[in-house]
Nucleic acid binder design. Structure first.
Length: 830
RNA sequence: GCCCGGAUGGCGAAACCGGUAGACGCGGGGGCCUUAAAAGCCCCUGUCCGCAAGGACAUGCGGGUUCGAGUCCCGCUCCGGGCACCA
């Protein structure tokens, strides 16, 4: 009785609406296994997913981050990423673009090699098996991938061109070799790039990274810092990614100031971002590794300095870079502060790092926490040169005053007193420059990219060393420098590559003079493989060039790239650098590889990251087998906002599967005679608009919700749906559940693929409501709602509202003000 | 410390430009069908008070602007991510 039974519908009529008057016990569920296998086969046979690489008139390059083919197989994270990209690609195709969506394998690298070592396999034999397993899993996922253009970075026909890329950079002077302190992972027994070190630990295995001095190949990515940073402003990229790159590049503006050493011709150059505080510089500090450190040391200090330098060298990288109690030692020398004219002591301390700036600083203990701490410990003078609104030049400093506002003024700074910090910075820098003491400079945190790896499973660096000719690049015609099949590929602690144990491999005649010479025995970083793979895809089967000029012009730069943000400062930065370098070398006509990049979120489970140790890893195979790839794909897209990720719950799939079953049921039973219902068509066009708007912003979860809502409308219509009501829905669902949509499309009588059927056209006149609901508020509190024809104005709405007793009772006296938001709300202020 | 995100029912989440908070889905409750179960279908489901009609309270916390704030402003807390003895 009462409210519960008011809207209740007879059950039989419900059933008829679903099953089209057929036997009421017949289930509506479809069989995804059969449907999916059928269409995967058909698409492969008919080349549905292939694009005309040479004739496309509206090219659209949709890229996803190619996976590293692990032995564990495809991860849900992979599928989540790929599905999001696939939906975008399929949608673009239906909008009329010629979509190229390739995929391949990032098969070289420490990952694969370490796994092979662990299980006692050989990477050259293991990798093809893993690739085959991935291929099987990916084919079941129903991605619209043009597999003809597959790449595998560990194959000769690919790494030959990786070596070619190295040679181009070398030719342009962007590759150089130097002995340097590098990050050494004692566990992986190889050098790591700075980007591969997280807080002093190897980002791969977590081992504490050590410093070693080795001869390494570097790429001059540092020279591109300004450009890499500047271009970020114009790229259509996720903000999280741009911000991570900005932080990593770490630009800071300041000045390089020269301090002449007293009674010597030596000059200590320091970098500072606060030239305005130079009057407060009471001592200088050199990094222990600084070349002048020994030069400036007086005889009396020599033993102490040597001991300190020795102590520093033996530190591991984590300790070296961690914040701890300040230590240091005086050189015994002095240098002149150009601003004050005073001679200030020169110290050596390990809180100054050789790799940043000039490796030397002017210490302003009054306004830098570290300098303050150091000055206190070693009883060095602390001078205030900035004071806040409530302070004077004489107010004692109990701690370093670092932050500042426009109210902070310079003090104890001679004729610069009373300038604001910002003014001081500009005027002081100018004054220092005019007098030859300083130059305005920009400093970057970004360092050159170390690409040498003392490992086996990668492309050999194409360089030969000859006693007579020196460092000789391998001629391009002699590429690839093949990676030999060796048994003893295990790395060791020597810092020498496994290839260096094979004389028969590294002893070669010099390409220039023919004299006996020796190959470089290091291989290149895996990130070089992936820094240019997007250039290779369109030309993947071309053995003559790295990338065909015409195809590259047609397809690149990439229109849409979707991937994980864990690659923000590795792969994505390196790819941009290599692209810029190839542009500068005249090989390509664009200097940014990815016009649009979107970072997707992370799939977690039970509120935690998936990991084998927690036992909460999802095996996609199981879910695909139980629910079908279409349901699994759609669920992954439904569980949260794509760009934020979400929590995977097995139970959640059932709701999506029910939706697809219902879609299947209404397509199968759709009525052909008669005309579609006006009210239903209105809802349909509203959904077309919603889904069309949501797809470009990757708002997949709300697009799915809207389609489900429309499906509910169809079911509640208490009649069999008309073909005209379901057909466009099939097209909207197609990017999400491609197999089922294709099946439905055939059932609806079409002979060509739904992906070539276009995108449903939105008709605003059909979507328009004739009657609208207006919320009525009294003093801002919602007290009821009225239904009025869409065209009526404020007066009629107010009249309708006052006619409702439950609203009118709150309106005591004459309204003071009426606020009317057309089509939405009426607020009566009394 | 600096820079990016974020916080909404039992749960995952919606909410255009400041305008009906909680769409959609899961879970839960009740019902239909069934010999029974499963499946399917129908209804209900933010919290509190109330027999009901209805009312009050609700978007991490504290203020503010506004006729009206999840949304804007100021000040915090907590969570995720990036950078960090970076001068």
């Amino acid at each position: 009785p009462g409210a519960h039974t008011k809207k209740k519908q007879p059950a039989e009529r419900r059933t008829i609406a679903y099953l089209g008057g057929m036997d009421t016990t017949e289930p509506v569920a479809y069989d995804p296994t059969a449907v999916e296998a059928k269409w995967q086969r058909a698409w492969a046979e008919q080349g549905t997913n292939q694009v005309d690489l040479d004739g496309a008139t509206r090219p659209f390059y949709s890229l996803m981050m190619f996976p590293y083919p692990s032995a564990e197989g495809l991860h849900v994270g992979n599928l989540f990423a790929f599905t999001g990209s696939d939906i975008s690609a399929r949608h673009h195709r239906m909008l009329g673009y010629n979509v190229f969506q390739p995929l391949g394998y990032d098969a070289f690298g420490i990952h694969s090699e370490n796994y092979a070592l662990k299980v006692g396999a050989h990477p050259m034999e293991m990798t093809p098996k893993n690739v085959a397993n991935f291929q099987r899993q990916l084919e079941r996922a129903g991605l619209m991938v043009d597999w003809r253009q597959k790449v595998d970075t560990s194959q000769k026909d690919y790494y030959r061109w990786t070596q070619w890329v190295f040679l181009q950079l070398h030719k342009q002077g962007l590759a150089y070799k130097k002995a340097a302190a590098v990050n050494w992972c004692p566990n992986d027994k190889t050098v790591l790039a700075n980007e591969q070190v997280e807080g002093g630990f190897c980002e791969r295995c977590g081992a504490a990274v050590e410093q070693r001095f080795l001869e390494q190949w570097f790429f001059r990515i540092g020279d591109y810092a300004e450009r890499l940073l500047h271009n970020l402003d114009t790229l259509d990229w996720s903000e999280v990614t741009r911000s991570a790159q900005r932080n990593w590049i770490g630009r800071s503006e300041g000045a390089e100031v020269a301090f002449k050493v007293t009674e010597s011709d030596d000059v200590v150059r320091v970098f500072t971002t606060r030239p305005d505080t130079i009057f407060g510089a009471t001592y200088l500090v050199l990094a222990p590794e600084h070349p002048l450190a020994s030069t400036l040391t007086t005889d009396g200090q020599r033993d102490a300095v040597l001991a300190y330098q020795d102590q520093t060298t033996r530190q591991d990288i984590i300790t070296r870079k961690s914040v701890r109690e300040k230590t240091g030692v005086s050189t015994g020398s002095f240098a002149r502060n150009p601003a004050t004219g005073e001679d200030i002591p020169v110290w050596i301390a390990d809180y100054v790092l050789m790799e940043y700036g000039t490796g030397a600083i002017m210490a302003v203990p009054g306004h830098d926490e570290r300098d303050f701490e150091f000055a206190q410990k070693f009883a060095l003078p602390i001078v205030r040169v900035v004071c806040g609104p409530d302070e004077t030049a004489e107010t004692p400093l109990t701690e370093a005053l670092t932050g500042h506002t426009s109210d902070h003024k310079l003090v104890n700074s001679g004729r610069f007193d009373q300038l604001s910090v910002a003014e001081g910075k500009a005027i002081m820098t100018q004054w220092l420059e005019d007098n030859g003491y300083a130059a305005a400079v920009v400093n970057f945190r970004l360092h050159d990219w170390c690409v040498s790896r003392q490992r086996y499973w990668g492309p050999p660096i194409p360089i030969v060393y000859c006693d007579a000719c020196g460092t000789v690049p391998v001629p391009e015609a002699q590429l690839p420098v093949e990676l030999p099949h060796i048994v003893d590929f295990k790395p060791d602690d020597s810092g020498i590559s496994p290839l260096a144990r094979h004389e028969e491999w590294y002893n070669v005649p010099c390409p220039t003079c023919g004299a006996p010479a020796r190959r470089e025995t290091d291989v290149s970083d895996t990130f070089l493989d992936s820094a240019w793979y997007f250039l290779r895809y369109p030309s993947a089967r071309n053995d003559a060039v790295a990338f065909d000029a015409e195809r590259t012009t047609r397809w690149l730069p990439v229109n849409s790239y979707i991937g994980g943000n864990e690659h923000a400062v590795l792969h994505l930065l390196y790819s941009r650098f290599v692209t810029m370098a190839l542009f500068d070398g005249g090989h390509i006509s664009f200097d940014e590889p990815f016009t649009q990049f979107r970072a997707h979120g992370l799939i977690i489970r039970d509120g935690a990251k998936m990991s084998k140790t927690k036992g909460n890893v999802i095996n996609p195979d199981e879910y695909v087998a139980e629910w079908g790839a279409d349901s699994f794909r759609t669920y992954l897209m439904f569980l949260g906002p794509y760009q934020e990720g979400g929590d995977f719950r097995s139970q959640g799939i059932s709701g999506v599967r029910r939706f697809l079953d219902r879609l299947w049921g209404s397509v199968r039973d759709a009525q052909r005679g008669g005309a579609p219902d006006r009210d239903v068509m209105r809802k349909l066009h509203q959904v077309i608009r919603k889904v069309s708007d949501d797809l470009p912003t990757l708002a997949y979860n709300t697009a799915i919700a809207a389609m489900m809502e429309y499906m509910n409308t169809l079911r509640r219509a208490e009649r069999v749906a008309h073909v005209g009501e379901v057909e466009p829905l099939v097209q909207l669902v197609a990017p999400f559940a491609p197999h089922l949509a294709e099946e439905c499309w055939r059932v609806l009588g079409h002979t060509a693929s739904v992906f070539d059927s276009g995108w449903p056209a939105f008709d605003a006149s059909l979507a328009a409501e004739s009657e609208i609901e207006i919320a009525v508020q009294v003093n801002g509190k919602t007290r009821g709602r009225v239904h009025v024809p869409v065209e009526v104005g404020e007066a009629e709405v107010l009249k309708a509202a006052m006619a409702d007793a439950s609203i009118a009772k709150f309106v005591t006296g004459e309204p003071r003000k009426i606020i009317y938001v057309p089509g939405r709300l009426l607020n009566i202020v009394v």
